[in-house]
Amino acid sequence: MMRTDGDSWDIVTSVGLTALGVATFRALETVDPEPMIRDDYAAWFVEAAGEPHFVGMLADPESVGDVRRFGHFMGVRTRYFDEFFAAAWQQGVQQAVILASGLDARAYRLDWPAGAVVFEIDQPRVLEFKDQVLAEHGAVPKADRRVVAVDLRDDWPAALTAAGFDPGQPTAWSAEGLLPFLPGPAHDALFERIDALSAPGSSVATDEFSRGLALRDFADTEEKFFGSNPFGNLDVSDLLYDDTRADPGDWLSRHGWSVHITTPVDLAAAYAHPITDVPPELIDLMRQAHYVRAEKR
């Protein structure tokens, strides 16, 4: 399932299947006795997709190694981006763009302020599936949700603007779980475009793995210590790019953004869910992953 130029997917193939896995981990974290986040929509997507591995994981988490651990990891990531959007709207920002939105249900589950507009960008078939499931459940968004069906390797700024995006207003941008799935040129163009579309007072948050982290080693280490591949037969590293690209934090800093960087390990501790019972080898790898938040001056 190697990547090719211009490839596409639905929710049970290629990159789409990773979005379904992430929804599964959010659903597992939601039913944990001490959850870091609550996403009651996630299980809807997993059940509707009917992919046997993830359906089985929800029905019997103990059957797939220490899979609840992945729910905790996803809880950390999800809470980080939840808090990023909350901080933005507390500063008066009312326009948000979720890049590669996948099965993200933030437009429905977060308490957006009156007048907030949330743009969701992703592949057409992924968004079609998502909208169908939400409609079947009668879900109602808590913001003005606008779907933008476009590949992030294409001219997504034009599609975003056509959907009503206003570059003259501050924007909160999220690129969650996205960057390694983009080839280097599209990765760098993403930040150039965000910068060009961002008025002063805008902010962006992303997670990145470009600081020396060997993604295949990370996946192999997880499987070694947790007993199984949480994505079933899918080798996620086959879908990722490791070509030359700019470091997001450095790039944003050089272009006038104020940058703040943390690690999953530090965030877990801040959320009172410290990572203390996994081997040091895995913790060392996790410290090479970074969460980046930046504000445009």
Rank of each mutant, 00 (worst) to 15 (best):
V22E: 00
L28S: 06
L28A: 06
L28I: 08
E29P: 02
T30L: 00
D39C: 03
M57I: 00
V67A: 01
R79Q: 10
E83S: 08
A88Y: 04
W89G: 01
A96I: 12
A96Q: 10
L103S: 02
R106N: 00
Y108W: 13
Q123C: 06
V126W: 01
L127W: 09
A135F: 05
V150L: 07
V150Q: 13
D151H: 11
L152T: 01
R153K: 11
R153H: 08
G168V: 04
G168I: 04
Q169S: 13
T171K: 10
A172K: 09
A172C: 06
S174K: 04
E176M: 07
E176N: 02
L178S: 10
H187G: 09
L190D: 02
P200Q: 02
V204H: 05
E208I: 04
A214H: 12
S228L: 09
G232H: 10
L234F: 10
V236I: 14
S237A: 14
S237R: 09
W251N: 11
L252N: 09
S253Q: 15
G256W: 06
G256P: 15
H260N: 11
H260G: 03
I261L: 11
T263P: 03
P264H: 08
D266P: 02
A268W: 07
A270W: 01
A270N: 04
A270E: 13
A270R: 15
A272N: 14
I275N: 00
P280F: 07
E281C: 03
E281A: 13
L285T: 07
V292L: 12
A294E: 02
R297W: 13
